[in-house]
Design a protein around this nucleic acid. Structure first.
Lengths: 232, 232
DNA sequence: CTATGGCATATTGTATACAAAATGCAACAG
DNA sequence: CTGTTGCATTTTGTATACAATATGCCATAG
């Protein structure tokens, strides 16, 4: 995102462990509600318990783990309410990002976004879902970057990671997919026109649709992710 | 905020240390930019370095500390831009809180808020600034509670703590104070009338005024808090 | 047969010892 | 006199040992 300085930035062991765990959680290798045994995990990751515990603290702060005193850490199991709450906040953040982006966007930014939009249309035409997700994410990241608010970006990414831990396969049927792509087209138009209110409305609406899809997908699978649900 | 369950919840050592450090930072006993020596701090807090380092990780996640690999932790020194960014996000969050509160508020809540408002008017009439701040905070906390969004509340509190670490003495002159009190009156009226748009507008405007006051106060003091500024 | 109490085991919490890295100073070369 | 290199010291990073707590099982009383 910056690219102007080159600190070598070796990862410290707790950071590396946290990154690895984050991936394991988001990829679903560590299921929601799973209890994390310190000794076992530290052996699997090849680090001692001390840095692992620091990693736990970081992930707990991100809301990916919950730590119970003397009872260890477990992967968070988001309740329906948690998901609703997180999406509501995400909506507010996206709305802000839209308004800020309108205030700060340059023509070069718009040009870049149009390129991404074209890529998205291609992925859509080719029915290439992974590519679509990738470009989709790139567009939203780009918007946040244009907004130029570090606190916003940070908060947004953290919340996003927490929701990704759900591993929802948002059942994206053709109709929804078509709509989503056209919404993105409208977003870029609104941004190019410097129409903050319109962009805000589009982003919030877009997210509300996603929220509904995720909540639906939570209903349509085993209730494991609901609060209190632990496997036998 | 909940009050329906009574887990004894002894604080674990890292949590206790984090809480203590948080207070030291917010109270200004640990100045922005101050370097935190692990051995010395652990002795002063009466804990060993292990739980202290976990506390560091928690506070770093909250944005109260920054940790540099192999170079320790230091109290965050917010730049002007950081403050602007944080307030922008706070504004979006407050706006959301207002809309949610309107959707979920009960008449009992409104009655409670009117009591707090009366207390605020008293503090204002008596020119009792500490009491005013206390009630002010209580009102905003209450609004967030009514909004009933745990993620929102959490995010809001974290950002608030980070800004409090600035130790700004928002130069509250009589005119501004009068305005602030009347704004609160309007807020409660908007909430009672279930007028979400009006409440959002009031909250966002209220916060923007605060942001301006804080940024001004940052200008009017030594530039210690600005990025790169380290004492001789 | 069920429920309670106590003990053995496993797991987390904390302190400390050791390793690795950074810092500051001093000696030296230019 | 200035800048650089190497060493001693300080500080952070990691592993491990020990302490405290929780968990689960079994014996026993009702």
């Amino acid at each position: 995102m910056d690219g102007s300085s080159f600190p070598i930035a070796r990862l410290t062991l707790p950071e590396a462990a946290a990154e690895r765990l984050r991936a394991l959680i988001v990829e679903g290798d560590l299921a929601p509600g799973a209890k994390l045994n310190e000794r076992e995990l530290s052996e699997r990751l090849g680090v001692s318990r001390t840095p692992l515990r620091e990693a736990f603290r970081m992930l707990a702060a991100d809301g990916l783990l919950v730590q119970l005193p003397n009872r260890g850490a477990q992967v968070v199991a988001l309740s329906r309410e948690d998901v609703r709450d997180a999406f509501e906040v995400m909506g507010a953040l996206e709305g802000l990002a839209g308004e800020l982006a309108v205030a700060r966007v340059t023509d070069a930014d718009v040009a870049d976004l149009r390129v991404l939009q074209a890529q998205m249309e291609s992925a859509h035409a080719a029915r290439d879902l992974p590519a679509y997700y990738r470009v989709n994410r790139a567009i939203h990241d780009r918007l946040n970057a244009i907004a130029g608010n570090a606190v916003l970006g940070q908060t947004y990414r953290t919340l996003n990671a927490r929701l990704h831990a759900l591993r929802f396969r948002s059942n994206l049927n053709p109709a929804k997919w078509d709509l989503a792509v056209s919404e993105h087209r409208s977003m870029i138009a609104a941004l190019a026109a410097r129409d903050g209110a319109a962009l805000r409305g589009l982003l919030v609406g877009h997210l509300r649709a996603k929220q509904q899809a995720v909540l639906d997908s939570m209903d349509n699978r085993d209730d494991k992710n609901l609060q209190g649900g632990t496997e036998p």
